[in-house]
Design a binder for these strands. Structure first.
Lengths: 160, 160
DNA sequence: ATCTGTGATGTGATATTATTACAATCCTAA
DNA sequence: TTAGGATTGTAATAATATCACATCACAGAT
């Protein structure tokens, strides 16, 4: 079950490598500019399967020699989100690297309140149920947010 | 279709009356304290089917003779949300009165980007799909956020 | 009726998250 | 090589949210 990645011990190095590789490819094929700040921002997000606030990112960027004012972080994050390389978690006002960039998107997010890990869950069923509900009201969905807070399997098993 | 209320012209007065009546009843039956600030906050939210920011509420409260510092609004809103009389819309960092207080809850929200109306949609199918997805990952959901941005029927029909 | 403890309110200060405005620089394409 | 747009940097500020603490209101015990 590749989707639960975030909740299991796994070869995390491959997450990072894959994330960056996809970004590079996207830059090549779509003519995007994966500049140093943007690349570094993605790297920072790829360290862990947690969501980081813009100011956490900013601090890390600043330590890496980039600018230290909020727009530096917000702009890089906006770029990554726009191109499907990262996601914004509304409930946390925070950002997380996308774990399946390229694949069709708009996942559901599962947020563990114990370990703070954020996983992407397949959301096809959820999306279609939501569309159906909206349809009956004549509402046209443009973009949806599906986020759940709870306990991940690892934390549920762990002793208190 | 009572659920699409927010997107249609309707007897809005009855929304307000019903909302307040339910709050009063809840106070009586559950021993809650529907104090003046809290009551007024609910009234303010019940004016329209839109989400209002905490500072919008605060301004209105202040004009009604209540305190003018943020905690005044945040505390009243927290109370209302806690007791199912209002909802927080994560995407908007804003609050809206609940339109079916008392009934089982955790609705999906449909947010019209044109007129800003917020409607509650039945979310049974969505919730169960989400639970199913979480189950397969061993994740236990405690609380979920389901919000969609799009265009409501009234705005879709309206000439540009 | 008064005391007493808990919950509610008010205020000031501050923390956190996000945006605006504008100058300097870098790339690309003609 | 040069004009134009995109990118980055910085300062300032806006918008959202919380903390700490004094005071006040009220229900239940005396």
């Amino acid at each position: 079950m590749p989707q639960s990645h975030a909740f299991q011990t796994h070869d995390h190095k491959s997450c990072k490598v894959h994330g960056l590789a996809h970004a590079e490819k996207l830059a090549k094929t779509q003519g995007l500019r994966l500049t140093p700040v943007r690349r570094r921002t993605l790297e920072i997000l790829l360290q862990e399967h947690r969501a980081l606030g813009a100011y956490d990112i900013l601090e890390a960027l600043s330590e890496s020699g980039f600018g230290s004012q909020p727009p530096v972080a917000y702009r890089a994050l906006e770029f990554l989100v726009e191109h499907g390389l990262a996601h914004r978690i509304q409930r946390l006002n925070a950002y997380t690297a996308c774990v399946h960039p390229g694949e069709p998107h708009n996942p559901a997010f599962l947020i563990c309140e114990a370990c703070k890990a954020v996983a992407e869950a397949p959301s096809d069923g959820v999306q279609s149920a939501l569309s159906a509900a909206a349809d009956t009201l004549g509402f046209t969905i443009e973009q949806s947010t599906i986020e759940a807070v709870g306990v991940c399997p690892a934390c549920a098993d762990a002793p208190l």
